[in-house]
Structure formats: C-alpha cells, structure tokens
Amino acid sequence: MAELEQWGVPLAVAGMLVATLFMAAVVTRYQAHLATVRLAVRRIEVGVQTLLAIFDDLQTVSLSRELRVTLRSDVLARYQKIKKLHKRYLGIAERIAEAETALNAEGAAPGGVGPIEDEQAFRKMLRALDRLIEIVSYGETVQPIPADVRGIFKRELGERRAEVVSRFYMVEAKRYENNGNYVRARMHLSNLMQLLRRTGPSTDFVRELYNEADAALGILNRHDSVDVDATDEGGEPNASVA
C-alpha cells in the first residue's frame, strides 16, 4: 500500500481500474456467448426454412404420413430448440404453435404425383427430393432417425423421385407424339429409361415405371414404322429417310 502511495496511485483509482478490467472481461465473454447463440440459432433457422421450402415444392408429390410426421416433428423440435437458446426470439411462440398445428393436421397420403406445370417446376421438385434424400441419408435432422427407418424413407424418396421423372418425361413424350414429332418423343422415352436405370432404386415399383416407358417406346416405334411403310407404298419419299 505504501508503495502505491509512493508511486502516486491512489488506492481508489487502482480499485476502479481492477473493476473496469473485470467488467470488460465479463462483457467480452457475454458478447462471445451471444455471438455463439446467434450462430446456433441462425443454423437452426436455415434448417427450418429448408424443410418448409421442401414441403412447398413437393405439395403435389405423395409422401407417406410417417415421413411427413417425422419432418413436421423435426420442424417443431427446431423451433423448441431456438426457444431454449433464445427465450426472447421474436415470434417464437407463434411459430411453435404453427408447427404443432401443421404436425397435427397430417393425415393419410394421397396417391400418385400431381400435374407438373413445366420443366422449371419439374427441376424444382427434383432439387427438393434430392435435398430431402440428403437430409434423411446423412442424419441432418435434430431428432435422430433410426437406421432402419432411414432406409425405408430413402427407398420411398427414391421411388417418388423416379415417379416424378417418369411422369414428366411420359407426358412430354406424349405431347411430342401428338404433334407428330416422333424423334423428340422417342428421345424423351429413351432418356427416361436411362434415368430410371441409373438413378432409380431397384424396386418393383421402379421396374414397373421402366416397363411402362419401354412399352410406350415400342408402340411409338411400331407407329412410326407403319407411317414409313404407308408412305413408301404411296410412292412418295419419306422425310426421315431422305
């Protein structure tokens, strides 16, 4: 103490300096904590928005009730986790209520895939299905999904993806056929069969889709062959042969 007085530093000033340094350290630690919380909340928010966007993009795709309930439950769990991390998060109570309502509203799944408006909608549906397959496959849900259940969901999603691909290409092939563009129609059917072989899961359902496309291609080839024969018999050159 005597030494401090000799140095000309009053004890009160020294105490204030120590207190200031302590408070600065506390504030720094608190700010670091807030930054960590904000980052964690942001990551959860991104996950929620991803799942909600997938639901929007796949409105016309029939997903099983079990899968939809699992995903809706995960959205709810993410909001509840945000509330634990950030009790004053704006609107969190309303979001939790909305997630609970959506979860309780899930019922039996309608069958099949609905109309696909255009290629842009088709690509959007494929991206949503591919992202959902990743989420299920790599365990990106907040609530863990047992390995056997993940396998069931992956097979289901693979079949739905194959069904979306099949519906789009079959409809496009038929449209080109009706317009007399058999080359484009055959190309769409051939592309579909290649995609089903390469990306579709090896299930009876996907094999049925493949056989349907193969049968349609066979009918188209026979139809085109009849047109060629009729033209040749009429003595006029066929454009595809010229």
Rank of each mutant, 00 (worst) to 15 (best):
L52F: 06
D232N: 11
E140R: 12
P146F: 08
L132Y: 01
S190P: 13
N238S: 13
A32D: 02
P201S: 03
T60Y: 13
R222Q: 13
V136K: 03
P144T: 03
R65F: 15
V226W: 08
G200L: 02
A53W: 09
S240W: 09
F205T: 06
Q31V: 14
G158Q: 04
R95I: 14
D224C: 10
M170G: 00
T28S: 12
T231W: 03
T141A: 01
V142N: 14
L195I: 04
T199M: 12
F122A: 00
V48S: 02
G139E: 08
V41A: 01
Y30E: 12
A2I: 01
E212K: 00
N178Y: 12
A173P: 00
G235Q: 00
A12E: 10
D130C: 00
V27M: 15
H223D: 14
D232K: 00
Q6G: 10
F205P: 01
M125N: 07
F153T: 05
L192Y: 09
K174M: 11
D214E: 06
R184K: 08
L189I: 13
V149K: 06
R127H: 03
A77F: 06
G107N: 03
R131L: 08
T70F: 07
E5A: 12
V149P: 04
V183N: 08
E156A: 01
L192P: 11
V228L: 13
E177F: 01
V164I: 07
L103C: 07
E66Q: 15
Q6V: 04
F168A: 02
L11K: 03
V69D: 09
E98N: 15
N179K: 15
A239M: 03
D148V: 12
K87H: 15
E156I: 03
T199G: 14
G151D: 11
V136C: 02
G15C: 02
A53N: 11
E156Q: 03
V241D: 10
Y169K: 03
L209V: 02
W7Y: 05
Q6C: 04
M23H: 08
V164M: 01
A108E: 15
F55K: 05
S137C: 02
A147P: 02
A97C: 09
L85Y: 06
L129P: 01
V26T: 15
D148N: 12
S62C: 08
R43K: 10
D57A: 15
T50I: 09
S240D: 13
G158K: 01
S225T: 13
E5L: 08
N181F: 12
L217H: 05
E172M: 10
T70N: 06
Y79S: 10
V13F: 04
Q59S: 07
A53K: 09
R38H: 06
G218S: 10
M23P: 09
A162M: 01
V13C: 08
G107S: 08
S190I: 15
P10T: 15
R197H: 10
